[in-house]
């Protein structure tokens, strides 16, 4: 299934890329590969860099889309974290899922003459939602979801492109009332394919 999906993605990207790149066309960036680090409280009672898990528990795979039109860039991203503590008798598993919508403005751009290679710098703002689920196994099982909370963020990202390849390095500061701590610095690198749309 995954193979079919990525083959389709590659075909579509290549096809669209082959089209004459009109200046007024937007671009869609699909970036399924992601490494995300957050400096936040861990279950070991320390504040440390934590690497986020991927979609369906597959490391490095995550849902990230962006649409860019001229100086504007709109994004949608998902983040997922899962932490387990306890032993055979008492197991607590907390999963946090976050969805962020972003809007960015291009403040810097540099590209090669044929525009096959480019680098852009964006200032971004984000808004989204975060929800946690706790599964407790203790002589039985309980699964409870938190009330969803709003998430806000501001940050900056660098987007580099070569042909259909797109790489995004994103740094942002997240704020949510029930996060630990309430302000969390996030660094992410995403890799994917880009095509005109």
């Amino acid at each position: 299934m995954k193979k079919i999906f990525f083959s389709f993605l590659f075909f579509l990207s290549a096809k669209v890329f082959a089209v004459d790149r009109a200046k007024d066309m937007g671009r869609i960036d699909m970036m399924p590969i992601q490494v995300q680090l957050r400096y936040e409280d861990s279950v070991e009672q320390t504040r440390q860099l934590q690497s986020y898990k991927g979609l369906f528990g597959v490391p490095l795979i995550e849902l990230n889309l962006a649409y860019q039109y001229k100086d504007y860039r709109f994004s949608f991203g998902r983040s997922y974290q899962n932490e387990k503590t306890g032993n055979q008798t008492l197991k607590i598993e907390k999963s946090t899922t976050e969805y962020l919508l972003g809007a960015g403005y291009r403040v810097f751009q540099k590209s090669s003459v044929d525009e096959a290679l480019s680098i852009e710098l964006f200032a971004n703002a984000f808004y989204g939602s975060v929800q946690a689920e706790v599964v407790t196994n203790f002589f039985g099982s309980s699964s409870l979801k938190s009330d969803p909370d709003q998430v806000f963020a501001v940050g900056t990202s660098v987007v580099g492109r070569y042909q259909i390849l797109v790489v995004e390095a994103d740094f942002k500061y997240l704020y949510s009332v029930n996060m630990n701590p309430q302000y969390v610095p996030v660094f992410a690198v995403r890799i994917g394919a880009s095509f005109y749309f």
Partner: peptide, 21 residues
């Protein structure tokens, strides 16, 4: 002091790690 983590559902709090529990 250790820092406890809970999630809040509609009416109560649920410890989300071992130390908090």
């Amino acid at each position: 002091a250790p820092q406890a983590n809970f999630i809040r559902t509609n009416s109560f709090f649920v410890p989300s790690d071992m130390v908090s529990m």
